[in-house]
Computed example of a mutant assay.
Amino acid sequence: MFLSVVLSTLRQWHRSRKTARELGALTDRELSDIGLTRGDISKAVRQGR
């Protein structure tokens, strides 16, 4: 049980970091096209937007 919770948390953390990296690689224009600014990236990742 404990191990599954830890693994699940690590997987979620890894997915969030990957998403943040991918969004960070976009240009400001591309971010604007999807309704984000560079400053919105961390909030969007946290909220799963």
Rank of each mutant, 00 (worst) to 15 (best):
M1E: 07
M1K: 05
F2K: 12
F2M: 10
L3E: 13
L3C: 00
L3F: 06
S4G: 00
S4T: 04
S4D: 09
S4N: 05
V5A: 09
V6W: 01
V6D: 00
V6E: 06
L7P: 00
L7H: 03
L7K: 12
L7G: 02
S8L: 09
S8G: 14
T9G: 09
T9Q: 11
T9N: 08
T9E: 10
L10A: 12
L10C: 10
L10E: 12
L10K: 09
R11N: 08
R11H: 10
R11G: 11
R11Q: 12
R11C: 08
R11K: 14
R11L: 14
R11D: 11
R11M: 10
Q12Y: 08
Q12W: 07
Q12V: 14
Q12A: 15
W13I: 12
W13V: 12
W13P: 00
W13F: 14
H14Y: 14
H14K: 14
H14N: 13
R15H: 14
R15Y: 13
S16P: 00
S16Y: 11
S16N: 15
S16R: 15
R17I: 13
R17A: 15
R17E: 15
R17T: 13
K18D: 15
K18Y: 13
K18I: 15
T19R: 15
T19D: 07
T19C: 09
A20F: 07
R21W: 09
R21C: 07
E22S: 11
G24I: 03
A25K: 13
A25Q: 12
L26M: 15
L26H: 03
L26K: 14
L26E: 02
L26I: 01
L26T: 00
T27V: 05
T27Y: 04
T27C: 06
T27W: 06
D28E: 14
D28M: 04
D28K: 05
R29H: 04
R29W: 01
R29P: 00
E30W: 01
E30T: 02
E30R: 11
L31Q: 08
L31D: 08
L31Y: 07
L31G: 08
S32Q: 10
S32C: 01
S32E: 13
I34F: 06
I34A: 06
I34D: 02
G35Q: 10
G35R: 07
G35T: 07
G35P: 11
L36S: 05
L36G: 03
T37W: 05
T37M: 11
T37E: 15
R38Q: 10
G39I: 01
G39D: 12
D40G: 03
D40Q: 04
D40N: 10
D40C: 02
D40L: 02
I41K: 04
I41H: 04
I41S: 03
K43Q: 03
K43D: 06
K43I: 00
A44Q: 04
A44C: 04
A44E: 05
V45T: 03
V45N: 05
R46E: 11
R46G: 01
R46P: 00
R46S: 08
Q47G: 01
Q47E: 14
Q47T: 11
Q47P: 00
Q47D: 12
G48D: 03
G48T: 01
G48P: 05
G48V: 02
R49I: 06
R49A: 09
R49V: 06
